[in-house]
Amino acid sequence: MNTLTARGTTASDTTAEVLLDVHALSKRFGDRTVLRELSMRVHAGEVVAFLGANGSGKSTTLRAVNGLIEADAGDITIAGVNLNEASPQRRAEARRTAATVFQKIHLVGRRTALQNVCAGGFSRLPTWRSIPPLFGRELREEAMACLDRVGLADRAHDRAGSLSGGQQQRVAIARALCQRPRIILADEPVSALDPRAADDVMALLHTLAVEEGLGVAAVLHQPELAQRYAHRIIGLRDGALTFDAPTGEVTPEQIQALYR
């Protein structure tokens, strides 16, 4: 079903460019510590899966990277830009190179798939072009290519709300691609999908990493999917790292310990 060429090569290529470098990241919500000096890296061309129980800090890490929350301490470096040291404008630019895919997909159901994908390119568009008829041919054709990349070119003019869950998540990935990212942050991208659609979406993320050199950081709740599609697995427990190893070296005991 899937042609995952790189699945056999277990260890990720540590000589590849580091696209995301999180160093000693800490975050508290009130008196609850959700991240304790967490450090991790995502390289170009690899899928990194985050595993851990609810509340272990997986999603918080991604949200600190894409800017939905601000961390209390620690450094985040995206494609060589340290967010703490960069100017606000550089910081925003760096964050744009990390595109987010959400568990709840977050497409605008009443807009077409193509119009939703175009939204990924808004940061390159002048404000006066903000309504669909003015998006322009350039953006529309780039969005079309992104839709084709996820295998949904034939559904371009269908309302996003009329697509199946798996198709919607692929449109959301196309929207992320239209952002011209170097990294995709996927926050439980398949939790709302049936097993078949979940497989398709994870296979797509894997292919994008291997073939286009994107870095993919995916929070997952299904260890089997992580073992099948990730090059590396990071285990989190109570906001701290418990292991960070190539998929082939992670033992079932290590994974079970995360949820105990």
Binding site: L68, A99, H106, F122, S130
Partner: peptide
């Protein structure tokens, strides 16, 4: 959700409201 998604994609306020 969709507003949040557009914000992380770098859309400005007007683009978020309009789209």
């Amino acid at each position: 959700g969709p507003e949040q998604a557009l914000r992380t994609a770098g859309a400005n306020r007007f683009q978020i409201v309009a789209n």
